[in-house]
């Protein structure tokens, strides 16, 4: 709704679009160039990583051809192999279950905590905020075995999606809390105070007033929480003892372990695995579009 009105209202005050497009195109090229190589490898039907291949005494154009990612011949064989050799679809589904659950649990717990940090003044508040930050500081290299002991030996959550969801949620919570707390801080309190006078309970205020206003931040944290679960490999590999419970990144790693490096399969799998992320982003990006929420509510 804001797009056109704003344009007509601001009119000449808007900066010119052309340089912006130039910048965006440059940035986009930078961002997709390596990705295009992934596509090239995936569609090459071969297993080798691509190299810039030039004839002797190459001309400028020979070199240009060499740096343009495009397979010599297009083949879908890598994709069909990835999808048929293993229960890859099942693993993608597992990943989806785990990541969505992580997103829901992580974002929900982070919302409540962040809301408390933003709105209540209580002793230990700063220490609590700090402790979420601190939790990100210890390098994870030595944590695998203690984590295994807690999850598998004590909580008996080995080979369950629940175990993974709990770990991924706790991994994603600190960022989500900080992000949401920062955003909640920008939401004016007048609305809540009015509702409080009307007799609304804190839960109602939170769900009915604050959360809808914080949609952009919730979208960002949701994407983050989802990604935490979606790409994780080593914990999933350590905790899951059944092939039917494996996740997609775990399945992908079968192609490139040890001496054998089948990059064609890996590239094809990587593309398949990225599709849901892009879809999720497409879905969430409407919350990241200008002219919504906080500002308009205040007026």
């Amino acid at each position: 709704m804001g797009l056109l009105t704003n344009r007509s209202r601001a009119g000449a005050d808007e900066p010119p679009h052309f340089p912006m497009h130039v910048l965006l195109v440059v940035a986009t090229l930078f961002s997709i160039y390596p990705i295009l190589w992934v596509f090239t490898i995936a569609f090459s039907g071969k297993q080798s990583l691509a190299i810039a291949d030039v004839p002797p005494d190459p001309t400028f154009w020979d070199r240009l051809r060499a740096v343009l990612p495009w397979p010599a011949e297009v083949s879908f064989s890598n994709f069909t192999s990835v999808l048929t050799d293993q229960p890859f679809a099942r693993w993608v589904l597992n990943s989806a279950i785990v990541s969505i659950a992580t997103t829901v649990v992580g974002v929900f717990l982070a919302c409540t905590a962040a809301y408390a940090f933003s709105r209540f003044r209580f002793p230990g508040r700063q220490a609590g905020m700090m402790s979420f930050l601190v939790s990100q500081m210890f390098p994870g290299t030595l944590m695998l075995i203690p984590l295994y002991i807690i999850l598998v030996k004590w909580l008996n959550l080995g080979s369950t999606h629940l175990g993974l969801v709990l770990v991924y949620s706790t991994i994603s919570i600190p960022f989500c809390v900080w992000m949401l707390k920062g955003y909640f801080d920008t939401i004016p309190r007048e609305l809540e105070e009015a509702a409080l006078i009307d007799g609304a309970s804190p839960a109602v205020i939170f769900f009915r007033i604050v959360l809808p206003l914080a949609k952009p931040a919730v979208a960002v944290t949701a994407l983050f929480a989802f990604m935490t679960g979606w790409n994780e490999f080593i914990l999933a590999a350590t905790l899951m003892d059944k092939e039917t419970m494996y996740t997609a990144p775990l399945g992908l790693r079968f192609f490139v372990g040890g001496f054998s490096q089948q990059w064609g399969f890996f590239a094809a799998g990587a593309i398949i695995v990225s599709i849901p992320v892009v879809a999720l982003f497409l879905f969430l990006q409407k919350y990241l579009v200008s002219g919504l929420t906080a500002g308009s509510v205040k007026g």
Partner: peptide, 11 residues
């Protein structure tokens, strides 16, 4: 049970 090589030793 097949385990990806990269995670096998740690597992």
């Amino acid at each position: 049970l097949a385990v990806p090589y990269d995670a096998f030793a740690d597992k």
